[in-house]
């Protein structure tokens, strides 16, 4: 593990049954670095980032997040989850709670924050994602883009050092993608360490410090956006880029 890595994956292997989803994955992420992960579906990108907050369990190798190694130790898992926020493709807001309650829940129950303070924090987060006026509505009353922004606010309220995004715009109508990406760009400019699985190549070009391309469970190529888009090394990357950029 290099000195200033905040996330370190070393020779990570994982299987679903007999099917190997991750093959010797190595990845070092520095503090404040923005990584964009792309690749065809089934390439293991979601699985990889889900291993980072232990929504999936890896079977071989070593994952260290902010100095804490992820093992079966529940205490370690809890401390890593407090460091790492996650945004899902399907938003996964809690439908029986209002927007405000969605955000205050974890601060109140996990961090034992007083209710008034948590609500103040929630309003602050909602302002960051630009929908403070929706605080008292329920998720079902919001558009997809608004729901995803609430989901981002919910993660930010736990004050994480690292944010993971698992295809955050894939379930959105085209006209709502921008409002979510704008929030993510703001977040990146604020210095958040981010790993983003996405096919939004425009976003990748503006925000990413490094591109990671995965195929069949392996990291095929890692490069700066400039090199990745203009001069990729592997043929597989070239094929992928030609397919998604000129469709």
């Amino acid at each position: 593990m290099s000195e200033n890595s905040i996330i370190s994956l070393q020779n990570v292997n994982k299987w679903f049954g007999d099917f190997q989803v991750l093959k010797d994955v190595n990845l070092e992420v520095k503090k404040k670095e923005r990584i964009v992960v792309c690749g065809p579906s089934g390439s293991g990108k979601s699985t990889m980032i889900r291993c980072i907050n232990r929504l999936e369990e890896h079977q071989e190798g070593k994952i260290v997040v902010d100095g804490i190694e992820l093992t079966g130790n529940l205490k370690n898992i809890d401390s890593v989850r407090k460091e790492v926020g996650m945004v899902f493709q399907q938003f996964n807001l809690f439908p029986h709670l209002s927007v405000k309650e969605n955000i205050t829940l974890a601060p109140i129950w996990v961090k034992k924050m007083p209710k008034a303070e948590a609500e103040e924090l929630a309003m602050k987060q909602l302002e960051i994602v630009k929908i403070p006026e929706q605080a008292n509505k329920y998720p079902g009353q919001l558009s997809g883009g608004q729901q995803q922004r609430v989901a981002i606010a919910r993660s930010l309220a736990m004050n994480p050092n690292i944010m993971l995004f698992d295809e955050p715009t894939s379930a959105l109508d085209p006209e709502m993608i921008k409002e979510v990406l704008d929030v993510m760009v703001d977040l990146a400019e604020g210095g958040m360490t981010m790993i983003v699985v996405t096919h939004e190549m425009g976003f990748a070009k503006t925000v990413a410090d490094r591109m990671v391309f995965m195929d069949e469970g392996k990291i095929v190529e890692e490069a700066s956006p400039d090199k990745f888009f203009n001069n990729p090394e592997s043929d597989r990357t070239k094929l992928f880029l030609s397919q998604i950029l000129h469709q």
Binding site: N53, L55, D78, R81, K82, V84, G85, M86, F88, Q90, N92, L93, F94, L105, A106, W109, V110, A151, R154, S155, M158
Partner: peptide, 23 residues
């Protein structure tokens, strides 16, 4: 209850009992 509800609850750090009780 969709699996995403469990994952969202876990990812914000709720414990098993908190997750079941609140979500």
């Amino acid at each position: 209850i969709p699996r995403g509800q469990y994952e969202a609850a876990q990812s914000v750090g709720l414990s098993y009992w908190q997750m079941n009780r609140k979500i």
